[in-house]
């Protein structure tokens, strides 16, 4: 779809400034592009390549390595259903099949109403709360098929205001005020912090530190 809009470009530059080298910001910036468009558009990747100073192929290489980045539009809500061992032992696969049947889609597809995409995912670190699911990366624990149906009907009824649309992760961003920043420098420029040098024990008589 598009390049970053002006507000996001400003945000992108703030994020880049938090790293010693611009390319380090690439994954957060790809998330930003996905937050803007719901997926990572080719034009956005071209824009990111300019912003961090690499070739577009390098951005693509990074983007396609990570499964959260979608290069095509997906449903407004991604339902990540875990089927890894702990969830498999407690009904994760049955939950996935139920979801497929209920929504009439296979993993990766978008439901007809454009609301849902389901994914058969790997362990999402809620193993004691198996079987579990994430809706746009927010958890639903110990989910029965009835619970699943409830989540779906609540979303359809617009009752889940707590869930951001796909692409948005944390609702709070780190922001370091200029006067609070200790200072991020490139690895070529950065050196030993002064405070550390001044806190070294005085050399003893043998001359060793």
């Amino acid at each position: 779809m598009s390049r970053l809009n002006t507000a996001n470009e400003t945000l992108a530059k703030e994020i880049i400034a938090r790293y010693p080298r611009p390319k380090s910001a690439l994954i957060p910036l790809l998330h930003l592009a996905q937050e803007q468009d719901g997926y990572v558009a080719d034009d956005a990747m071209l824009h990111l390549a300019e912003l961090v100073g690499v070739e577009p192929a390098e951005v693509l290489g990074t983007c396609t390595f990570y499964e959260m980045f979608k290069r095509e539009p997906v449903g407004k809500y991604i339902l990540n259903i875990c089927t890894n061992l702990s969830c498999q032992l407690t009904g994760g696969e049955e939950l996935l099949h139920h979801a497929e049947k209920t929504l009439g889609i296979r993993p990766g597809d978008i439901s007809d109403d454009g609301l849902f995409t389901i994914e058969d995912v790997e362990c999402i670190a809620a193993c004691t709360e198996a079987p579990c699911m994430q809706v746009n990366y927010r958890y639903e624990y110990r989910l029965s098929t009835d619970d699943f149906d409830q989540v779906i009907s609540d979303i359809r009824a617009g009752k889940r205001k707590d869930l951001p649309e796909h692409g948005t992760l944390g609702l709070v961003r780190q922001h370091i005020p200029a006067d609070r920043l200790a200072g991020i420098e490139s690895p070529e420029e950065a050196g030993t912090p002064d405070w550390f040098a001044s806190r070294q024990p005085a050399p003893d008589e043998s001359g060793k530190a």
């Binding site: 006067d179 200072g183 405070w195």
Partner: peptide, 23 residues
């Protein structure tokens, strides 16, 4: 965190970074 931690000369930045799905 940041510049002059606890009023001392110690200054340290902690930057939040997040991944995108890869075990």
């Amino acid at each position: 965190v940041g510049k002059n931690i606890l009023g001392t000369d110690v200054s340290i930045d902690v930057v939040l970074h997040w991944g995108a799905g890869a075990y």
